[in-house]
């Protein structure tokens, strides 16, 4: 049976060591972080995601039509990002498609980057990053990178479904959550997330350019943030900020 969502590679990859995922989500943190990593490491475009469940949108870059959800990188480091929010109907199939692709390409660690909304974000100079992992290997990586584990809480949205699929299928998925604005684009949170990725995967991505351009990025991503916030409303995203009903 044809999958509802397919990752199409321009040149098929036999294996991929690490794969980063950054979708429009809380504070656009993951999308900004992964876009910056792609730009800073000059990762080539190597594929895209195809599905009838994604919005009927194409983007034009330098005169060339592009699918909004694209894959960059090589066999050492791949990165998947999207220029359009993921609607509720696509979340499940996308997560299954992504995890199945990761397993078929023997991805050692799938790293999802996202934001976690905090009420007092404007009082926080450097956002802290928390991690969650589906396997012992991932938890050891978090520990050796000194990234604190999120002890209690809810996760809602595309990254939550990727986490669930990975847990079910035995894939190491590490989710990095940077303290972030919930309704406003947050390049500062993205910079913190990138610093955590550097420690986790041994990369050396400079965030100076991102921080220098943070204000202009905030101006230019307002509409994507608004569209993303509307799309997250349909997923009960505010549950992430609720207190737990019980412990244990």
């Amino acid at each position: 049976m044809l999958e509802e969502i397919q990752i199409i590679e321009d040149t098929p990859l036999s294996s991929v060591k690490y794969c980063l995922v950054g979708m429009p989500d809380t504070g656009l943190t993951g999308m900004i972080a992964v876009s910056h990593i792609v730009h800073a490491l000059n990762l080539p475009e190597i594929g895209h995601v195809e599905s009838d469940l994604l919005p009927p949108v194409m983007v034009i870059h330098q005169g060339n039509p592009k699918v909004p959800m694209r894959l960059f990188g090589d066999s050492k480091l791949a990165a998947l990002t999207s220029e359009t929010p993921i609607n509720l109907a696509a979340v499940g199939p996308l997560s299954r498609g992504l995890v199945n692709w990761a397993l078929s390409r023997k991805v050692m660690v799938l790293v999802s980057i996202s934001g976690i909304a905090v009420q007092n974000r404007i009082e926080i100079e450097t956002p802290q990053v928390f991690g969650i992992s589906t396997t012992k290997r991932g938890r050891e990586m978090l520990e050796s990178s000194k990234i604190p584990v999120l002890e209690e809480g809810f996760m809602v949205g595309p990254h939550a479904m990727v986490l669930r699929e990975s847990l079910t299928k035995g894939l190491t998925n590490i989710v990095l959550l940077a303290q972030s604005h919930s309704q406003y684009p947050d390049p500062g949170a993205a910079a913190s997330a990138i610093s955590a990725v550097n420690k986790l995967l041994g990369l050396d991505v400079d965030v100076k350019e991102l921080l220098d351009e943070a204000e202009e990025i905030r101006v230019k991503t307002r509409e994507l943030m608004q569209r993303t916030a509307r799309s997250l409303q349909g997923m009960a995203k505010t549950q992430e900020q609720e207190l737990p009903a019980m412990y244990g």
Partner: peptide, 8 residues
């Protein structure tokens, strides 16, 4: 409480 994002 109204917040407004006003970069730049």
């Amino acid at each position: 409480v109204v917040t407004v994002d006003l970069p730049m």
